[in-house]
Structure formats: C-alpha cells, structure tokens
Simulated assay, not measured.
Amino acid sequence: MVGPAIGPIRRSFAPWNDPGVKPFIEFRHVTKRFGEFVAVDDLSLQIYEREFFALLGPSGCGKTTLMRMLGGFDEPTDGQVLLDGQDLGGIPPYRRPTNMMFQSYALFPHMSVWDNIAFGLRQDGTPKAEIKARVEEMLALVKLEKFARRKPQQLSGGQRQRVALARSLAKKPKVLLLDEPLGALDKKLREETQFELTDLQMKLGMTFLIVTHDQEEAMTVADRIAVMDQGRIVQVATPAEIYEQPNSRYVADFIGDINILEGHLAPAPPGSTRLECAATGANVEVRQETAAPTGGQAWFAIRPEKVRISLDAPTDPSVNAVRGEVWDIGYLGDVSIYHVRLSTGATLKATITNATRLVERPITWEDKVWLTWSHDAGVILTR
C-alpha cells in the first residue's frame, strides 16, 4: 500500500504562522564566547514541534555552536536555551531529551550494528526485552535487518550513516540533532538519503534540527531555514522564500546561483521600482515597492533560470532587455549556463534547460544575443 504523499502534508504544516502555537525550542538572546571570539552573538530563534529546521551557513558562522548549546555540549555565555518550556541551563547532555548524530558517525568499530544501536539503551538500564524490541524496530526503520551482526567496517558509507541514525533514534529523543550528517556520502547517495530523512522525520513526527553548509541539502529537507553569518541569523524563512525573496545580498549570493547588479533608485510608477543600472547600460524595472529613497543605492538580483536568452530581439516592449555577446558556456547535462558579456563590460548568466538531446547548439560562443526578463522575475535589495 502506498502511503499519503508528503507534499500536501508539508504544504499545510506552518505552525510559525499561527500566533497561538508556542515554540518547542527557543534561543533567547543567546551569546557564546570562546575567549575573545564571539561564536554566537545575541541570537534569538524559535523552532516548532515536528519541524525539520536547518541551520545553514559557511564554516565558522556559529551554526554548530548553536546546536551544541541545545545538546548540552556547550553552555551559553549569556541568554537562555529552552526546550518545551524548560530552561536547559546546567542540565548535562545525557539528561536532555535530545540526541545528536555526529558528522563522523562515531560508531564503535568493535561492536556489531545491533550492539551499536543498543548501546544507549543499555547505558540507561533499559530492560532486555525492551532493548530487543526497540533495536529490531530501528533496524526495520532504516532497512538494515540483514546487516544486524556485521561490524561497521563491513558496511558502506550509506549503511554506516543509517546505523548512526538508528542509534540516535533508539532512545526516542524529543529532538534529533544532525551535524552535517550526509557530508561523508557521495553526491548521488547524499541526494537519495536527503529524501529518506524527510520521509523518516514525517513518519516519526519528531523535531529534527540539521546543521549544514550545503544549500541544496537544506532546501531539500527543511521546512524552514535559518541562514547564519558571523554568529547572527540573517534570515529565517521557508526554502522557497529564501530562494525567491532573499532579504539581503548575502542571502541571495549564498543560496544558489544569481546575478546581482548595482544601481541607484529612480522615480517609478506605483507598485514598481526602477533602478538606474550602470552594468546593463539601461534602467531595470521590477514589480516591487521599496521604502528606500530615490537616488539611494540598491541592487537588482535575478536567478539565471529566470533570464531568457535569444538570438532575436524581443517583440514585447514591456520586458527588461539587454544585448550582449556569448562569452562562455557551461554544459551541466540537465542545463547549460551561458555567460553573456554586455557592452558595459558586465557579465550576466542565463540558464537553458536541455530538454532534448544535444545535437547542435542553437546559441554558441561569440553569438550576439538578447537577454530578457519579466518585471516580476527578480528582486530589489537595499542591503
């Protein structure tokens, strides 16, 4: 029997939009210092029960430190960390209703898969019958029943990852903390495992918090993403909002590929923003209002897949249009990325989906082309 599709469940799950729902995890003005270095700087964040939440950012931005404070491996210098209304200050890791799956998996090499999963339960003095039932349940959950008596070194990377996941879940924590859990897997297996993680999280109805620097991973698994930089949160939103409506150049540039053009705000009709853009040699008009004053500095950001490329001049006068020359082409299999040099010297990227087998490229190097985009294809950023 095929179970219900996750998509509809995901779309209806948005407790952060309901003022009547209390957060399950709260960071209240949390600061963490290591000597003079500030790893987390006066950060506040709310995460909801059953949410798959991602902390995303470059190395050293504070995301792992934030997770470690929730798990009890580090204590805040200032502020509070609360779980289900309880202040976790001073509570050691082994007494918190959380469990962490480390990037290295940290499996015991001398123990079998079965014993690795049972380890935490034995440490807690769980009755043998309950341990047996729980381990068998976890093995079935991660589809490793046939590998129960093998040692970790006899398993593939993906199988070891599943053992570590099963061990983390065996004690039924309220929150599962995932620290770069898929970093050791190859690209194809990592992509497959991302969907397995979301299926598992939905099936268990648990709260997952994942730390990653992989934007595609965060976009795939998370209900919401917090983008971090230098110990602070820059934006918290759903993957679609983060991608389509970034609130700053930092977020726009960090998530996916993007063109960012600098300019100054010019007078525009109501409901629109016009940018005098030296890079394009023309004004760029966007169907978006901004509170920034006329003449102020701003940036236009547009994803390459929203830029159309053509050998023919546009016939629709309502679109934004610039002319240039194909400078470089990147063939990635599913898409081709065109780098187009404008007469101003600026370069814009446009993406074409390779919907048919590549026999003859209609647009090639040194071709004179037109780039066009609609008024709602990009966003104006003022910071």
Rank of each mutant, 00 (worst) to 15 (best):
A5G: 15
S12P: 07
F13R: 09
P19Q: 13
G20K: 12
F24H: 11
E26P: 08
H29M: 14
R33K: 14
G35L: 07
V38F: 02
S44K: 13
R50I: 07
E51D: 09
F52Q: 01
F52W: 08
F53W: 03
G62I: 04
G62H: 02
K63N: 03
T65G: 04
L66H: 00
L66V: 14
G71V: 01
D74Q: 14
D74T: 07
E75W: 03
T77S: 15
G79T: 11
Q80V: 09
G89I: 02
P92F: 03
P93S: 11
P97I: 05
L107S: 02
V113I: 14
N116V: 08
G120R: 03
G120C: 09
D124L: 14
G125Y: 03
G125K: 04
A129S: 15
M138W: 03
A140I: 00
L141K: 02
K143T: 06
E145L: 04
G158P: 05
G158H: 02
R167P: 02
L169W: 00
K171Y: 03
K172W: 08
L178F: 12
D179T: 00
L182D: 00
A184D: 00
L185I: 07
Q194N: 10
Q194P: 01
M202V: 15
L204R: 02
G205H: 15
G205Q: 12
D214N: 12
Q215R: 06
Q215E: 05
D229N: 15
R232N: 09
I233Q: 02
V234S: 00
V234A: 08
T238H: 12
E241S: 14
N247W: 01
S248D: 04
D253Y: 05
A266E: 14
P267V: 11
T273V: 07
R274G: 01
A278V: 09
A282Y: 01
A282C: 11
R287C: 06
Q288I: 05
E289Q: 13
P293Y: 10
P293V: 13
G296E: 15
G296N: 14
I302F: 04
E305P: 06
E305C: 06
K306A: 12
R308V: 10
L311R: 11
D312Y: 04
D312A: 08
V322Y: 01
V322L: 11
R323N: 09
R323P: 01
G324F: 03
Y331E: 12
I337P: 00
Y338W: 09
Y338V: 05
V340H: 01
R341V: 10
L342T: 05
T356V: 13
T356Q: 09
E360N: 09
W365S: 07
W365F: 14
V369E: 00
W373M: 01
G378F: 02
T382C: 12
R383N: 14
R383T: 11
